[in-house]
Nucleic acid binder design. Structure first.
Lengths: 131, 131
DNA sequence: CCGAATCCAATTGGATACTG
DNA sequence: CAGTATCCAATTGGATTCGG
């Protein structure tokens, strides 16, 4: 699959089959879901595996249920691995995959694009509140 | 505000105040919300203003309520403009701003990053379903 | 025509209790 | 310890109706 580049923006979807488009959207959603970036960040900063409880502590405001769901989704998409050590009490460790680590590059780009235009966004919102 | 670049990924949040971080997240959310990309795309391809009904027709599967909400959010963030022509019956036109048009660049980057790794994502998901 | 308002179904999310 | 299960509150989303 090769993405055609034309003068038209947003054409990047066109070269995909319906299944590919669906998968790509799924991944995009899991990346941009409520808690994903925070969890990815915590794991990136850990430079190694982290137990469930440690992640729970470091992601401010997340509930245990939401964390479980977020981790499962990111695992499903191959961004992190889940390793269960069958001990009593059990130990479960989460760690970024190479894919998960590489992700920070394009995500950081988008983030910086937004960060570089914060004044424009703030101005737009301020204008909006007037009318 | 200057974003510090270190070897650490995800540090791009650090140089922001809490208010800036909140705003950036708000924008990121509005961009990645359910229908935003489709709406932005339709407007980008229009090369000009588009009436509410025309957008509604071209975004497959969206409800009128969801479209109204999406348009309002994107307008609030300065990505498009809403122009009301006080006629009977009323006419309302939506058009991308420069900010909205520029957005397609970083979004396309992230999209291509994902698109270029679809096989890895598919493989990860396949593996997942086994266990 | 545009969209606000209303109603209702379905999904989400937190809190708590429980288990291997 | 790391969840799953359950209950419940709050939010979301579609369908429909109504109004300027």
């Amino acid at each position: 699959m090769v993405t055609k580049h034309t003068s038209e923006p947003f054409t990047f979807c066109d070269a995909m089959t319906q299944g590919q488009d669906r998968l790509a959207r799924e991944v995009l959603e899991s990346i941009t879901a409520r808690w994903s970036l925070s969890v990815l960040r915590v794991l990136a900063e850990a430079h190694g595996p982290l137990r469930f409880s440690r992640v729970l502590e470091r992601v401010e405001g997340i509930s245990q249920k939401a964390l479980t769901h977020t981790l499962r989704t990111l695992e499903r998409d191959g961004l992190l691995t889940r390793t269960l050590y069958p001990q009593v009490p059990p130990r479960v460790e989460y760690e970024l995959t190479t894919l998960g680590r590489d992700l920070s590059v394009p995500v950081a780009s988008l983030w910086r694009w937004i960060a570089g235009r914060l004044e424009e966004f703030a101005a737009a919102q301020a204008l909006q509140r007037q009318s």
